[in-house]
Write a protein that binds this DNA or RNA. Structure first.
Lengths: 135, 135
DNA sequence: ATTGACCTTATAGTAGCTTTATAGTTTAAA
DNA sequence: TTTAAACTATAAAGCTACTATAAGGTCAAT
């Protein structure tokens, strides 16, 4: 199959596929005489794996790491689990930070209504005063 | 004051200050005869405002928008409040997405322990199977 | 005179693509 | 048969918000 079909099948853009190839995440496929890339079922699986990892928020570097484990299937999978644990704690700290941020934003927003002039805007005043407790 | 002092005062790097100037977020200061930038109290306030907005997660474009409101202080501040409301809902949807992601990651992690080979790793299998319900 | 701390500009790198430019190939319609 | 649409190719730039590097000018102290 050619790049367009692969793209449609997995739901990515053709440029993204070339980009993954260039980044070493997708093996370079064979080429037709005209230079067109020819993909196999392996590539479909590989690309789908990458996309699912991306949906899970893994970086390309982390995906690369997972692929290296797949290439050596008789290792213990401790490292895979550790990678996921790290990622989970990363996601959790992001959530915590965003929740604190939301609180701050909501309280800032509460300091103004829409019936003022910019000059007297509670929101702008709140930012300018700068009594912000980080984290 | 010179750029290094301003940087230390507000807690940013000198390059960041030049970057903000280049992006039109900080007005170009006067120069000494030797070309060194000379900053005033106005710049301290301006830079501190930018930094506080950044801590609140606002983009440089959004900060630029807020500055344009500050430059026209007799408008109603509806737009300021709307900007903040948009930002709050953006933060909230990020939180929601990350919470869903965390759930997914935790359940994936639960499908494996450390006593397997990569070949039999529940995590990698879980990703490859791809029974992922997005959002 | 030279060291060190400071300042200058310009350029490239970061992540993960997306966009644009330019050009060659295939396929289907006119 | 020609021609236009749809596909493919490469290379390079753009996006965000900086950070880092290079190569050099300025200034105070030793």
């Amino acid at each position: 199959m050619r790049i367009g079909q692969l793209a449609q099948l997995v739901g990515v853009e053709t440029q993204t596929i070339r980009f993954y190839e260039q980044q070493g995440l997708l093996p370079p496929p064979d080429r037709q005489d005209n230079g067109y890339r020819v993909y196999t079922e392996k590539h479909v699986e590989g690309l789908a794996f990458i996309r699912r990892c991306r949906i899970l928020g893994l970086s390309l570097a982390e995906i690369h790491e997972l692929q290296s484990y797949q290439d050596d299937p008789h290792q213990p999978c401790t490292a895979v689990n550790a990678l996921l644990d790290d990622h989970i704690s990363h996601v959790r700290s992001q959530i915590t930070a965003l929740q604190a941020l939301e609180k701050q934003l909501v309280s800032l927003r509460a300091s103004c209504n829409d019936d003022r002039e910019v000059e007297a805007c509670g929101v702008l005043a709140g930012i300018s005063e700068g009594n912000m407790h980080q984290q």
